[in-house]
Design a protein around this nucleic acid. Structure first.
Lengths: 104, 104
DNA sequence: AAGTGATATGTCAATTCTGACATATGTCAA
DNA sequence: TTGACATATGTCAGAATTGACATATCACTT
């Protein structure tokens, strides 16, 4: 958001902040949320780059299409284990995953 | 292991390899195992650097001393979620965690 | 409009993971 | 040796996550 727009909104009584602020997350919780979102987004990016459907990826993981949809939506009942397994199942290396996680 | 020692052992009929080889892990499984071990090791390293006992860390996580012991031992019933929560609970940032994961 | 393939959403029983607890082992100082 | 503190190991009921399935929605072609 541009600074001037933020000023105008605040003048109008709106509090502006990130979703983390809004939800009053601790720094640790915030890091975890960001991590989950990054992974979920990258799974989709990689899947599409490989021309896989969700069903294709599910088959590789011994899972189901609906679970992949939930994974990519970063739904709260999706574990980090599942997210990482999806990454590695698409050939991602620790090096690449580390870079993704470290990215600001 | 030093190369010469490995040669001697192989000459004696021993097969030398990594645990991954021995267990016949796929590359994806291998990446996951290494990831878990790296995190578990780093949790212990950080905890000790902070002069925390396992009970201290457990309290921060709303967990128990025994679960932290299992975590640091990378026992198979410990989730990646729990490992990451422990890292972040000790103040680790995504940047640092990413570097740890990316490290060869 | 109807058909087709991909993705999203909801539910649920089974599996997996968790905190809690008991207890064992280890370490070190008094 | 005893005591005090830290860590390890085992168990288990409850909580969280899973695959499977049904079905809805979307995008595109005919």
């Amino acid at each position: 958001m541009k600074p001037d727009k933020q000023k105008r909104l605040e003048a109008a009584g709106f509090k502006i902040g990130t979703a983390d602020d809004f939800l009053k997350l601790t720094p640790a919780e915030s890091e975890l949320v960001t991590l989950r979102l990054s992974l979920a987004h990258d799974v989709r990016r990689r899947r599409i780059a490989l021309h896989f459907t969700q069903a294709d990826l599910a088959r590789r993981l011994g899972s189901s299409q609906s679970r992949i949809a939930k994974l990519e939506a970063a739904e709260p009942d999706v574990s980090l284990d599942f997210l990482f397994r999806a990454m590695f199942a698409m050939g991602a290396k620790r090096r690449e995953v580390g870079q993704l996680i470290a990215a600001v």
